[in-house]
Design a protein around this nucleic acid. Structure first.
Lengths: 148, 148
DNA sequence: GAGGAAAATCAGAATGATTCTCGATATCGT
DNA sequence: ACGATATCGAGAATCATTCTGATTTTCCTC
């Protein structure tokens, strides 16, 4: 996680927020920085701990703004704590490994070849069902090393 | 959704519950019947409406029991209403199309060929990350016909 | 670089899906 | 039929998330 990356992220985030008539305040910068340092999606609590001077109510609101602007993405997991990560447009397409026991989330990627095949069939499935597809999510559930 | 199916489901559900030291009460039968009739995952509210004489607090508790026994599965969606469907062991492996607007969920399947290739890579990804994989979920997000 | 308008912040209150409590009821094995 | 245990129902409690209202910061214009 080199600093260059954070600079690039900040520039992209600022651009996205501006395009949506929002400001890239220091609180929002701290959120982006914390998500960047973490190598996996964070719960609100983890984010509040990791980020500098983050206040709960403001952070909830800022995450809504950041998600709306396309800077962050809410990751859906079975436990009832929302998790957030930087949007794939700012990082790269990936999937999640979710531990059934501790709830922890790790990233992984498919081979380009399989990912392409998958995309083709998914578009087809969407067409058949009358859906306009925006994205897909592929998650693995199991038990992580430390929980087994 | 022929009646034969429901008979088979009831037999399987009874077996699973018994194996877990639970009873297949009429309330639980009504839940299974309602989920069987619906062709997609139901929210608690939809389930209470669809099922015969279902009480909220009892239904929540019964869904936990049924999930523990492997009769039903909780479907994870972005909106904050839990959804449930019959477990894949009692039906068949499938995936979900989720509407970003109305939250509705539809089922679809991949070709066996692709599903097998996918399984292979996913096992591999789990091994690499030190996860023991139990299942995967593949969901499509987009806009359904009635919302576009 | 001062003034004003709009956006953002903070602390605490409100919301709402889900879970828990507890007394009453139904079910199983003997 | 009897006792032990599972289940039920109604309402209270929990807790992540959202909202509120007053205050502060930021940006734009002159």
């Amino acid at each position: 996680m080199p600093t260059d990356d954070l600079d690039r992220l900040n520039a992209q985030a600022a651009k996205l927020l501006t395009a949506h008539a929002h400001r890239f305040t220091t609180a929002r910068q701290h959120i982006v920085a914390a998500l960047h340092e973490a190598d996996s999606p964070l719960t609100i609590l983890q984010l509040l701990d990791a980020g500098e001077g983050l206040v709960q109510s403001t952070t909830y609101r800022n995450l809504v703004v950041l998600e709306d602007a396309g800077v962050v993405t809410r990751v859906i997991t079975p436990d009832d704590h929302a998790r957030y990560e930087l949007d794939e447009h700012l990082t790269h397409h990936h999937h999640h490994l979710i531990c059934n026991d501790c709830g922890d989330v790790k990233d992984f990627e498919l081979s380009d070849n399989l990912e392409n095949k998958l995309d083709g069939e998914l578009q087809e499935a969407g067409r058949t069902a009358g859906f306009r597809i925006e994205r897909h999510s592929l998650d693995l559930f199991g038990t992580c090393k430390s929980c087994s």
